[in-house]
Design a protein around this nucleic acid. Structure first.
Lengths: 122, 122
DNA sequence: CAGATATTTTAGTTATAACTAAATTGCTGC
DNA sequence: GCAGCAATTTAGTTATAACTAAAATATCTG
């Protein structure tokens, strides 16, 4: 099997790189991942987890009310090696941190304006 | 020197990958690159060339009214090796082609609405 | 200088990614 | 069943990337 384009898209985003690093060697529950990331809502993390699953880069396992995620390293091919090299590189770590800090000033407000629909009451 | 984040962003985009491939081993004029790509305006190509230069992945050389671009392979580190492996992979090539075709149905219309300003006549 | 050619730049548009807050779903234990 | 926690989903927002068409810039040629 060759290289996955999904893997390239994944590693282009600091946020997704952060998730991948957390679940690279051992599975973690969604909430645990969220807590480890800070400054982003649970919902946002859940969305990224779904995207990563759908492109085959993560696998999920349900246990009780928790869901455990783990990287599918074999699906990433050479891109995986690249990631590992990155994480071992001290200089790189600084850069990644800086980029994440920038991203935190991204889409911010999204303040609610109208009333919320109730789906079940139609 | 370590890995450049810019390189990751570059290889995540099929369009920029295409440009990089064209100027990987030998320099090419902007127009030549544009003609080789098809289905995109010269302006769009020029913008991508600028972005790639600014992130240090290409170098430019002016000669008469032409501008020649060439990849700065040494700035890409391990990402460069990854790209080379991709281009040698037949399966990958099919995928890349498909993705470019999709991207061609991206931002399309941009039809003009108002009159254009004339900068020099103020 | 006028015209042709090569490229860049600008202004505006569309599509999309990433996000938030709130609602919803699913499981557990009382 | 209902309260409570974990996680997901939804609807709407903001920021941004990629693009087009037109205008501008620069260089060469007669």
């Amino acid at each position: 099997m060759g290289l996955e384009t999904a893997a390239l898209a994944a590693i282009a985003s600091p946020r997704r790189r952060e998730i991948l690093r957390l679940v690279w060697r051992e599975e973690r529950a969604a909430g645990e991942i969220h807590r480890a990331m800070g400054d982003v809502t649970f919902g946002a993390v859940s969305q990224q987890l779904r995207a990563l699953c759908e492109s085959g880069l993560l696998e999920a396992r349900a246990d009780g009310r928790q869901r455990f995620y783990k990287a599918r390293r074999e699906a990433m091919g050479p891109v995986g090696e690249l990631l590992e090299r990155m994480w071992d590189d001290a200089l790189w770590q600084l850069k990644q941190r800086a980029e994440l800090a920038e991203r935190r000033r991204g889409p911010r407000a999204a303040r609610p304006r109208g009333s919320r629909r109730k789906k079940g009451t139609a």
